[in-house]
């Protein structure tokens, strides 16, 4: 995946029984972001695979003051990449 300077990982192990995931996002490379942000902070949030979109969550993070508007695309992309990976893992027979 393209390096956005952001890292998104599962905050809890995925047991594949729930469409809602707990994800954690943090800034790995501040130089890749356009706006200011708080250092060394991880943001944990829920993401529903069926009803949520990465763009929507990124927008909420911007509105909540975690990121500058200009970084919302990078935030959305980071979430989208991780969610795609989780979905692919779930689709594999041995994924869960």
């Amino acid at each position: 995946a393209e390096d956005t300077g952001l890292r998104v990982e599962l905050a809890e192990e995925d047991d594949c029984s729930n469409s809602s995931l707990a994800l954690r996002l943090w800034v790995e490379d501040p130089k890749k972001l356009k706006g200011k942000h708080k250092d060394n902070e991880a943001i944990e949030f829920s993401f529903n695979l069926e009803t949520d979109t990465p763009e929507e969550v990124a927008y909420e993070m911007v509105k909540s003051g975690f990121f500058h508007e200009s970084d919302s695309k990078a935030v959305a992309k980071s979430i989208r990449d991780r969610v795609s990976l989780i979905k692919k893992t779930r689709e594999k027979p041995a994924g869960c």
């Binding site: 902070e41 991880a42 943001i43 944990e44 949030f45 509105k63 975690f66």
Partner: peptide, 27 residues
């Protein structure tokens, strides 16, 4: 450690915590 919770108007809850040092800049 201190945790901060922010609830967006849409209802989603964001929990802010410090990133463990071991997770920073790992490649």
């Amino acid at each position: 450690s201190s945790l901060t919770q922010v609830v967006h108007s849409a209802g989603r809850r964001f929990i802010v915590s410090p990133v463990p040092e071991s997770r920073l800049r790992e490649s």
